[in-house]
């Protein structure tokens, strides 16, 4: 209770400082607007259909990318994770592929795929694949042999052990991977939008208002929206993980 109050005081203090600094005239208000101006602009924007469309475009691309990445990475991880040799080879390859920042592929993808939403979705899928894939493989690595022995003693076959023992056991790990991937996917979707891949989305919109006349109030309104999307996705997935795997200690640890 007290910590919530302190948190609120902290936020309020920050906003007040910002407001005061905005009025103090350190910089022209188009470069450093007071917070009230940013919120006023945000209010106006949220009332327009176009702006809401941009938000939806981003969120939708992010959700699709995350779903596709999960759909590919989990089965692939289960398959690769079942063979120790393949598992080790994959780890090595990923070690070499991972250091390339996915954003560097944006220009290539724009040429290959074009300016549609497919571009940002493809890149986000590519970036989001790895954490889920890795956590799935690791989860299989960590599977308690006792569970498998038990299942085998009840006469379960290889496939049944995979679906009824290994997978449920791996789910909390996998979900942790999904959470990491979610923020990566969001970063990549917005990055592609910023690079002008795609003709809609919050990043694309921010790029527009940041060029030409300097309108910091609009840019910051866009950043706030991006932050809220990020915050909601973090919290939403955390909440979901607690609901689904409250019994598991990793769920708590991953916070």
């Amino acid at each position: 209770m007290r910590s919530a109050l302190r948190g609120a005081i902290g936020v309020a203090g920050f906003l007040l400082l910002w407001e005061a600094a905005g009025h103090a005239g350190f910089a022209p208000q188009n470069l450093f607007p007071p917070v009230s101006m940013v919120f006023a602009r945000l209010g106006e924007l949220l009332a327009t259909e176009e702006f809401l469309r941009e938000i939806i475009a981003t969120v939708l691309a992010w959700l699709i990318a995350l779903a596709v990445a999960t759909g590919i990475a989990v089965p692939l991880g289960l398959l690769l994770g079942s063979y120790p040799a393949v598992r080790r080879a994959t780890k090595v390859l990923v070690e070499f592929i991972r250091p390339v920042p996915p954003v560097a592929l944006i220009p290539l993808l724009i040429v290959l795929i074009g300016n549609g939403p497919e571009t940002k979705i493809s890149l986000a899928v590519f970036g989001a694949l790895w954490p889920i894939l890795f956590n799935t493989i690791y989860a299989l690595d960590e599977l308690e042999p006792m569970y498998v022995e038990t299942a085998r003693s009840f006469g379960l076959g290889r496939a049944a052990i995979m679906t009824r023992v290994a997978l449920p056991n791996a789910l909390p790990f996998i979900f942790t991977g999904v959470r990491i991937s979610a923020s990566i996917a969001l970063i990549l979707v917005i990055s592609v939008e910023l690079r002008g891949g795609g003709t809609a989305g919050i990043g694309y919109w921010m790029l527009g208002v940041s060029q030409g006349i300097r309108q910091m109030d609009l840019v910051l309104a866009g950043t706030l929206v991006a932050g809220v999307i990020g915050l909601l996705s973090n919290y939403g997935l955390e909440w979901l993980q607690r609901r689904l795997f409250g019994w598991n200690e990793i769920a708590q640890e991953a916070r």
């Binding site: 470069l31 917005i190 910023l194 919050i202 208002v209 840019v219 910051l220 991006a226 932050g227």
Partner: peptide, 16 residues
């Protein structure tokens, strides 16, 4: 909140 902002979204801010 601040850490939830996707970092590339900061580029336009500092660009302006």
């Amino acid at each position: 909140f601040l850490r939830s902002v996707p970092p590339p979204a900061l580029i336009p801010v500092f660009m302006v």
